[in-house]
């Protein structure tokens, strides 16, 4: 099986990797690049734990092939904080106890960040529908939704 050579950008860093044709972007991130912050909860696009952005668009990395990354820009949870500074959403999730086990958290943060970039003033309902593809089994979503709404308000005020 010939491997494919892919040149891409991940979290702003020019990155090259070799992958097999059937390897998903998630497989590549986790197994080849050791970026294990993106999680596999289902492998079928139903849980959102593997959420990344692909040229700024929110996607499930389990539903893209690694080979498709050629020439594109990928952002993962590992690129969300800037140096020592957490992204405001990361900080707000900590303050609001918006995570329990934490396994869905990277995906939810990536998704929430994509939301606020598109819509800085979402309603509760808009946040809930935007995040409907990110399953959380621990929190009942309450504190997650509050954290996103409050972070949006803070960021608008800033």
């Amino acid at each position: 099986m010939a491997k494919i050579h892919v040149t891409t950008t991940i979290n702003g860093e020019p990155t090259e990797f070799l992958c097999e044709p059937q390897q998903t972007l998630l497989d590549v991130l986790r197994d080849e690049l050791r970026l294990t912050g993106s999680k596999e909860g289902c492998g079928t696009g139903d849980c959102g734990a593997c959420s990344v952005t692909f040229d700024g668009r929110l996607i499930c990395s389990c539903l893209a092939l690694g080979a498709e990354a050629e020439g594109h820009e990928i952002e993962t949870i590992e690129g969300m904080a800037e140096g020592e500074n957490l992204h405001p959403l990361q900080q707000k999730f900590l303050e609001h106890a918006a995570l329990q086990c934490g396994v869905c958290t990277p995906g939810i943060l990536i998704a929430a960040k994509a939301l606020l970039e598109k819509n800085p003033d979402p309603s509760e309902s808009e946040v809930r529908y935007w995040l409907a593809g990110n399953l959380c089994r621990c929190t009942g979503y309450d504190k997650i939704i509050r954290a996103v709404l409050e972070c949006a308000a803070d960021m608008r005020g800033a």
Partner: peptide, 9 residues
């Protein structure tokens, strides 16, 4: 069709 993530694709 699907979630926000699915919509991206």
């Amino acid at each position: 069709i699907g979630s926000t993530q699915i919509q991206g694709r």
